[in-house]
Design a protein around this nucleic acid. Sequence first.
DNA 1: CGAAGGGTTGAGCCCCTTCAATCTTAGTGG
DNA 2: CCACTAAGATTGAAGGGGCTCAACCCTTCG
Lengths: 249, 249
Amino acid sequence: MHSPGSPPLLAMVKKLRLWKDFSRDEEAAILSLPYTMSTLEAGRYLVRDGDRPKSACLLVSGFACRHKIVANGARSISAVHMRGDIVDLQNSLLGLADHSVQTLTDCEIATISRAAILELAFSFPNVGMAMWYDTLVDASIFREWIANVARRDAASRVAHLLCEFAVRLEAAELGDKFSFELPMTQEQLADATGLTSVHINRTLKTLEASGDIGRAQRHVAIADWDKLRKTADFRTAYLHLPEEPPLAK
Amino acid sequence: MHSPGSPPLLAMVKKLRLWKDFSRDEEAAILSLPYTMSTLEAGRYLVRDGDRPKSACLLVSGFACRHKIVANGARSISAVHMRGDIVDLQNSLLGLADHSVQTLTDCEIATISRAAILELAFSFPNVGMAMWYDTLVDASIFREWIANVARRDAASRVAHLLCEFAVRLEAAELGDKFSFELPMTQEQLADATGLTSVHINRTLKTLEASGDIGRAQRHVAIADWDKLRKTADFRTAYLHLPEEPPLAK
DNA sequence: CGAAGGGTTGAGCCCCTTCAATCTTAGTGG
DNA sequence: CCACTAAGATTGAAGGGGCTCAACCCTTCG
């Protein structure tokens, strides 16, 4: 579902523009990156732990996540990605994938070679800086997730995930912060919060009963943003979004 | 302490050389970065959550950690750093610190302005790439820590921390992988593993009783590396170290 | 209509926490 | 050299948050 009129790489421009303003030339340079489009169903892998990817994937539509499996077979999800995220920069620049990337929903993907990205980054320092910045923001989110999983109770962890998803969804201009479809099963929520799917279920019901959220199937309505924020201990600083969110269109 | 003969920035060269080979020019460019030295006691802050740092800090000797505090007052440590780590690149490039950096031991620090680092990164792409790579490796370690805290039991978590510390210590040429001084109190270990100091204490004793490690005060001796690795579910891939560790000297 | 994936619920248990006391070690001043 | 202090390590007892196991329900889709 990305609109057929606009070029797919515009999603990348929009994302990077959160971090830096670009000149016409710089923007053109991004849009002229060579890429190939593909469509993937939910549940498919973009990269697998142990692969040696030679290219990065821009998520043009849909949702994906990063995860790794530990010895006892349990899975840990370390990030959720959405339109505009250059989802495999980390693995492809490092050379050897230390985790997997898997689609959560059907996705459209633009594949861009690592070489082309590096060329762009170092010919246009401003663009390079925005990409570097982008990977640093990802790292900041990882740090917050460490704190989330390590030091918050179940209700806070789940609430925090919902707050982050809501804010990022809005920043990506993908919908309403207060009412959205969560593209994850309760088992995936469990893997993203270090809980079990059973306990996710109970926790969601608690959040519902306490008036923080409403829900119907996978749809989440944030009933009381300030209340949920408080339950979550959520502060947006770690997302490093611009002070004034850019006006929608 | 760092040997008085060698220039402090050599620590940075050595670290970055783990990721890229440098030409003589590139190496000289790193070594000619302007910096100011300072010495900090254990427990001092290099940056505080909320600061707007204008410069980055190279750790020339000693140990430091990153942490953030959650609503209930609990602390989460998200990384431990040692000689050669450019410890505040993340906060200074992002502009607004989303976490604090604090010394664990007495430290010698070289402070380098953000502008000088960016200048270097984009005049010498190979050096820039090494620095980017360095921040990507940090991110990879964060992902592993998420998995550690989210999906492993107490013994594995602590064992994993010890394995990582041992391997990084060796990679930084700071000592013996199998026998070292751990520069952290049990409370700090707790904050790095999402446990309590009481349980850290019991877990260390368990690891000792099972023959994985020996210890005396803060000194740790890895009694059986393979056993500890197995307990920890530790695989080095996520550290992205070169296949052949560079020969000492 | 049947199957499959995912959501919901209950009962019992256990890993880790909490609370609190005691011990050890290192540092300080007399 | 020894009291005195403070930080950190150690230990015990009791409790709880989240897990495990297992059943059942709901929705979607062929």
